Structure formats: structure tokens, C-alpha cells
Computed example of a mutant assay.
Amino acid sequence: MLRDVTGIRYVTPLREGGSVPGVVEADDLGTYVVKFRGAAQGRKALVAEVIAGELGRRLGLRVPELVRFDFDPVIGLGEPDEEIQDLLKASGGLNLGMDFLPGSLGFDPLVFGVEPAEASRIVWFDALIGNVDRSWRNPNLLVWHRSTWLIDHGASLIWHHNWKTARTAAAKAYDASDHALSRFSPQPAAAAAELAPLVTAELLAEVTALVPDEWLADEPGFEAPDDVRRAYAELLAARAADIHERITLAPVSRERQPPPEWLRTWVEGKNA
């Protein structure tokens, strides 16, 4: 089970993403980036966050802790933006929180380096979950304490937006030509040899069980939340078997340049 926390203070909205998550303090004295179910992407974005994030964590990737976040819109009454007020009012109850990483920096592939083995695991993982939102334009990676952390998986599992065509969509190739880590010589086949055997039926059942029933209820074409969970597990198991054979990578056009000395010194100071 994901931990349950309750929001006690709405701090600020994060306007970089289309879903406008917010930084919220909780009753466990922690601070979280909260993804709201009232956002335009709806509850399926939260489902994708849970399944992708918790699967990534169990495969050894660094993903901030996810929590079940109970939110009362009353704590956000001080927010002056009317659109955000509407979002908060539509999101009372159970939402999703992601541990806030203070002092983290947005990943820039021209500044930060990633070892080829780690790049391989992340590219393969993104192909597995069908993540369309990890490009060099919008990496959805953070650098925290000199390590790379994966965030924002709400745009993954894109096939679940139309279950009638899900099997066909999930069988398609994965285009990683503009992936944020494509310049770091990823080898998806090597990552698949390491990680694919770990994606067992038991692991997928464990991960999908973390999704709250209320986010899966009344899904067209399914009788019960457990039926939806099995559909996610079946598609992910099928992709894990051979997705590495269907990943398109861009050729590396030039050598990565080291960051300037001033920036490297500043980053090391921030992450000390």
C-alpha cells in the first residue's frame, strides 16, 4: 500500500506542467508535489503515475516516493488564481502526492552526464511504459544529490485512453529518437536482458494493486477494478518480452561537451 497523508497547507502551484500540480505540506511534516484528479488529464494520469512510478522503483530506478494524498480544497482558499481555485475545488478527496526534492535541478542533457548503463535502463523503461514525455525539450528528470531521478509519468501507458485499441497501440514500436538520454549511447537490449526477467506476473499484480479502486471504477468495457488491473498487467508483460526490439534510437551526432567550470562548481555545491 502507498502511505496515506493529508494536506494541511497549500504552498504554491507549479505552472510548468499542463496539469498544474501544486506543492502542498502534509500532516506527516513532509512536502509533496500533488497531482490533482480534477486536472484536465483526469484520473488516468494518476493511474499512470502510480503504475509507472512504482514499477520503475521496483526495477531499481530512482523515483520519488508516491503517496495517497487526501486534499481538502479549503486549505487552498488563499490561492488568488481563479483557474487554479477551480482545479482545487474539483479535486477534493483522494489525489496523488510525490515527494518534493528540495534543491533539485531540472536535467539538461547538455550539462549533466548519465552513464550509458543507466541511460539504457531508463530508455528501456520508458519504452516499456510507452512514455511519450521524456524528450530533450521536456526531460522530466531531476538531478538531486548528484543522482538522476525520474518524475512525471502521467503521459505514459497512453493506450489506456482507448481500451478497444489498446492491444494494437501497445504493440507499436517506441520512438526514442528525441529521448532526453539518447545522446548517452543507450543499449536497450542490454537493459532488457537485466530488467525484463524482473517484470513478472507477481510484480505487475503487486504494482497494479496499488491503484485505488475509485480511480479504476466504471471503466468502460470492464466489470470491476481488478479486471482493469489485469488488462494493464497483461499489456506490460507483453511489452517487456520484446519491446527492446522495437525501439528507434537517433544516431549520436556529436560528442557531449563537459559543462563549464562555473556551472559544475555550482551544481556540486547545490548537491553537496
Rank of each mutant, 00 (worst) to 15 (best):
L66D: 02
V67D: 04
D70L: 08
D70W: 12
F71H: 11
P73N: 06
P73I: 05
I75G: 03
P80V: 11
P80G: 10
D81Y: 02
E82F: 13
E83R: 14
E83V: 04
I84H: 06
Q85D: 05
D86M: 05
D86H: 06
L87C: 07
L87K: 05
L88S: 04
K89G: 01
K89S: 12
K89P: 00
A90V: 06
G92K: 06
G92R: 09
L94M: 14
L96H: 08
G97D: 04
M98D: 00
D99K: 15
P102Q: 03
G103K: 04
G103H: 04
L105K: 06
L105G: 01
G106N: 07
G106F: 04
F107L: 06
F107C: 05
D108A: 13
L110G: 15
L110I: 01
L110F: 13
V111L: 15
F112W: 10
V114E: 13
V114H: 07
A117N: 14
A117Y: 10
E118N: 07
E118T: 14
E118Q: 15
A119P: 12
A119N: 12
S120K: 10
I122D: 02
V123W: 04
F125V: 04
D126G: 01
L128H: 11
I129K: 04
G130V: 01
N131L: 01
N131F: 01
V132K: 05
D133L: 07
R134K: 15
N138E: 07
P139T: 07
L141G: 10
L141R: 12
L141N: 09
L142D: 11
V143I: 15
V143C: 10
H145N: 13
R146A: 11
T148P: 00
T148G: 00
W149V: 15
L150K: 06
D152G: 03
D152Q: 02
H153T: 02
G154F: 06
G154K: 08
L157T: 09
I158H: 12
H160Y: 02
H161E: 14
H161G: 14
T165D: 11
T165H: 05
A166T: 03
R167C: 00
R167M: 00
A169L: 13
A170N: 08
A170C: 08
A171I: 00
A173E: 13
A173Q: 05
A176Y: 05
D178I: 14
D178T: 11
H179G: 05
A180R: 07
L181I: 08
L181Y: 08
S185W: 12
S185M: 08
P186S: 09
A189T: 08
A190D: 12
A191E: 01
A192W: 06
L195P: 07
A196C: 07
P197H: 12
L198F: 00
L198S: 14
T200E: 09
T200N: 09
